[in-house]
Amino acid sequence: MPRYISYIVTSVTVVLVWYAISLQIGALLLPDPVSVLSLLLTEAGSARYWAHVGASSWRIFAGMGLAFIIAVPFGLVVGSNPKINKIVSPFISMSYPVPKIVLLPIILLLFGIGDVSKIILIMLIIFFQVFITSRDAARNINKEMILSFRSLGGNKLQYYQHIVLPASLPGIFTSMRLAAGTAVAVLFFVESISATNGLGLYIIDAWGRADYTSMYVGIVSMSLLGILLYEFFEILERKTCKWKHTQ
């Protein structure tokens, strides 16, 4: 089945279930999908709505992008070098379980309530997942393949290019995909606490005004943001890891 068809089927199912539930529990708590989606279409014509979407997208994009750019090379180098791993990994094991979200007040104090603090928090949370995946992928590369590659004349840099990176990419993209969900959740949290714009604020603001249709427009928008990110990494994985998708 082509992917777009499965997407259409899934979307239609979600909307139908949504409709059924809203009929059951009443439009006040869960407005029906038609009114939410039509308001969404109206909003799509307003610059104010796109300013919120833009602000949220930028924070997620920058936070995840930074995490990716730092965590992947760092993880691959640490995983490929047992000596470095021995020094670095205890620090990671110690700081990974700390719930980074509790650092929000400190980050806000340090970086203010602008974009920087939000980006840093997202980056901090995503970083560990991606780092650990990259490190472990690099660490678990088949010994014989490493030996073969060296005997073919491959140097250290070529080793990263031809062996470590491609071996780790599938895992890295899986972790980025999972991280997309986490990142949207974190974004909602920070934007609902301290922000002057963004979809999190949009939702909380509508909630405060008891404008539930608008609130759901915000929820749907945030979900779409997450889905788009998820798909983005899925497509990237398909493009760069073709060997994983052959029978």
């Binding site: 088949n142 014989e144 004349g153 031809h162 491609p166 890891c241």
Partner: peptide, 17 residues
């Protein structure tokens, strides 16, 4: 470069055609 080695599991990276 004068010595080539073939190991038991061949060492072919699975991501290369």
């Amino acid at each position: 470069n004068d010595i080539a080695l073939v190991l038991q599991d061949y060492g072919l990276p699975p991501w290369k055609t």
